[in-house]
Computed example of a mutant assay.
Amino acid sequence: MRPAEHGADPGGGRTLALTDPPRHRQLRELVDGWFAVRSVRALEEEMRDIARSVVDRALERGGCDFVADIAARIPLYVICKMMGVPQSDWEHLYDVTSQAFAAGDPVTRRFAHLEILGYFETLQEEKAARPGDDLVSVLATASVDGERLSPEDVILNCDNLLVGGTENTRIAASGGMLALLEHPGQWHALSQDPGLLPNGVEEILRWTSTATHIMRTATRSVEIGGRRIAAGDRVVFWLPSANRDEEVFEDPDRFDVGRQPNRHLALGFGEHFCLGAMLARVELRLLYGELLKRSVRVELDGTPTLLSSIVVNGPERLPVRLKAG
Rank of each mutant, 00 (worst) to 15 (best):
G132P: 13
G12C: 12
T141V: 07
V222D: 15
P198Y: 10
I310S: 14
A230G: 14
R110E: 08
G104S: 06
T210Q: 15
G13M: 13
E182I: 09
P22H: 14
A17Y: 04
G289F: 04
G12H: 15
S174D: 01
R285A: 14
G268Y: 03
Y119P: 10
L27M: 09
E5R: 12
A230W: 08
T166L: 08
E290H: 06
E91I: 14
Q192M: 14
E250Q: 04
V257C: 00
A17K: 13
E125Q: 13
R14Q: 11
E125P: 04
A4P: 03
V312M: 04
R110H: 15
A128H: 00
R321Y: 03
A189Q: 09
A103G: 07
L286Q: 05
P198G: 09
R285P: 05
Q87Y: 10
I310F: 06
M1R: 12
A242T: 07
T19Y: 03
R148G: 00
L275P: 03
P151W: 03
R41I: 06
S174I: 02
E167H: 10
G302E: 03
L27Q: 07
R73Y: 06
E271P: 07
Q99E: 14
L149V: 02
G62S: 14
E44T: 11
P319V: 01
E246K: 05
L275R: 07
A128T: 00
L306A: 06
L139H: 01
G62W: 15
L16K: 08
R2G: 09
A51W: 09
E29A: 15
T19S: 09
F66E: 02
L16E: 07
G63C: 10
D256L: 00
V96N: 07
L18K: 11
D233H: 11
P131L: 02
R48F: 04
A140C: 07
D153R: 05
G268W: 02
W207G: 02
R130P: 07
R285K: 12
L275T: 04
P194V: 11
N243C: 04
A17F: 10
G84V: 13
F120Y: 15
L162A: 07
E182L: 11
R228N: 09
E246L: 05
A71M: 13
G195Y: 02
D245W: 03
R41Q: 14
A103P: 01
G84C: 06
A231S: 11
I171P: 06
A266L: 05
H24V: 05
G175P: 07
P3E: 08
G226P: 01
R244K: 00
F120W: 12
S309H: 09
R73N: 05
A72P: 13
E203L: 13
I229S: 14
F273I: 09
